[in-house]
Each structure stands twice: as C-alpha cells, then as structure tokens.
C-alpha cells in the first residue's frame, strides 16, 4: 500500500494516467466508429477503475490532475477567437441567429426546471443540469456559481453532446430542416463541441456555424440561468 502511495500519488502520474486513458479512448473511438465509445467515456472508465483498484481517493486524483482542469478556463477564452474567425458567416443572419440561440437557451433552462420538478428532483440536481447544452468549461462555471454538482454537470454535458451528435441530424431531417446555417446552429446549440465535430462532417458552413453556436449558447445560458432563477423566485 505504501509503495502505491509513493508511486501514484503525484501530478506526473495523474497527468500520464489522464492523457494515456484519453489516447486509448481516442484510438478505440476512431477504430470502432461507435459513438457510444466516446474518448471521454473510455477515459472515465479507465481512470475510475484504476483509482478503485488501487484505492486512491478522488481528492488525490483531482489534486494531481489540476493542471488539465485549469486548462478549461483558457479554452473558453479561446472560443472568443473562434467566434471572431467565424464572423463572415454571421452576415445577414445576425438577428435570426441571436434570436434562435437565445430562445433555445431560455427554453432549454426552463424545460430542465419544469421536467426536474415533475420528476421531483432535488434543486441541486436541477441546477446541475440547467447548463447541460453548454460547452463543458462554461457549464461547469455556471453550475458552480449556483451550487450545482459540477461532476454531475460534466456527465450530463457529455450525454447531451453525444446524443445530439448521433441523433441531431436525424431530428433535423424529420422536421425537414434544409438550411446549412440552421443545421449547424441547432446542433451546436444543443450539443456544443461534440455536436460541432459531427456538424463538420456534414459540411464546412455547418461546422463553422456550429462552433459559433457553442460560444453564443455559452453566453446566452450564462445570462438565461440567473434570469430564469429570478423569475421562478419572484413570480412563482
């Protein structure tokens, strides 16, 4: 036991474990092409199994992997540059894009609150799910600000991302959406980066607009969550 403590209880090991599991996950995902075998899911299973086998508490892992976790903040700031790069796709669509994403984010938050209450979920669970369509780093920030369980937020973000990436295009064809801008925008709004990866497979415009949608949805939801909370507290 003492030996494992010395060997594993340090940042270099935790970082190696995290990146190694992720590389393995990426490899399996690319080889199998099964969307359920997403790199995140695989690395999650690998890391948790490892920690369980060697009886390492979560806190030790969190401490060791803090460096990767920190990168979330700079990654969000970088989305601003991505947004700037995609300005040209905004031409003529500014008003409709802003309307669509803001309505989408508000309804997204409200629907989670309504369904959560119908299911009788604890308020901390509902708060954790409110930012579930937003890219992870922003979602974690929102969830943390309102007393949500960030780990639960992280999990729901991945579920929504995977679901939208796999079934999003099908949903769009069922309701007969043909505009590339509408396709990219909606998949990015509901399924952030995972959706954007899929939208890029459909087309360049879809991918770029989807990337733009990630940032917009992040900002809109950051604003929508306190607004919806205020309405619930003061009006209902």
């Amino acid at each position: 036991m003492d030996i494992t403590q010395h060997l594993f209880n340090n940042a270099p090991f935790m970082l190696t474990l995290t990146m190694g599991s992720f590389l393995l996950g990426t490899y399996i995902y690319k080889k199998s092409k099964i969307s359920l075998l997403h790199p995140c899911i695989i690395s999650m299973i690998c890391i948790i199994s490892f920690l369980k086998v060697f009886d390492i508490p979560y806190e030790t892992y969190a401490e060791g992997s803090a460096f990767i976790n920190f990168m979330l903040g700079p990654a969000v700031v970088s989305l601003g540059v991505l947004l700037y790069d995609q300005m040209k796709y905004l031409k003529g669509n500014v008003l409709s894009i802003l309307t669509a994403v803001s309505v989408g984010s508000v309804i997204g938050v409200i629907s989670v609150v309504i369904l959560g209450r119908l299911f009788g979920l604890d308020s901390s669970l509902i708060v954790s799910m409110e930012p579930k369509s937003v890219t992870t780093p922003i979602a974690l920030g929102i969830s943390e600000s309102y007393g949500g369980i960030t780990s639960l937020t992280a999990v729901t973000v991945v579920i929504c991302g995977m679901f939208g990436a796999v079934f999003g295009p099908k949903v769009l064809s069922v309701i007969g959406i043909k505009s590339p801008v509408a396709q990219g925008l909606s998949i990015g709004a509901a399924s952030h980066g995972l959706g954007t990866a899929r939208a890029m497979e459909i087309g360049a415009v879809e991918g770029a607009i989807s990337g733009l949608s990630i940032g917009l949805m992040g900002v809109m939801t950051s604003v929508a969550v306190p607004v919806v909370h205020w309405f619930i507290e003061n009006i209902f």
């Binding site: 997204g108 369904l115 925008l185 709004a189």
Partner: peptide
C-alpha cells in the same frame, strides 16, 4: 432514469426550436 430522460428530451427540444427559428427567418 429522470436524469437521462431530461437530458435527451431537452436536447431534442433545443435542436428543434433553434433550427426552426433560423430556417423560418431565412
């Protein structure tokens, strides 16, 4: 169950609403 249900149903809802508004506007 409720967590998965909420995630999936609201994801579909957001996709439909956002795509619908943008398509109609265009």
């Amino acid at each position: 169950f409720s967590l998965t249900f909420i995630c999936i149903s609201t994801t579909i809802l957001i996709i439909m609403i956002v795509a619908f508004i943008q398509e109609k506007a265009e």
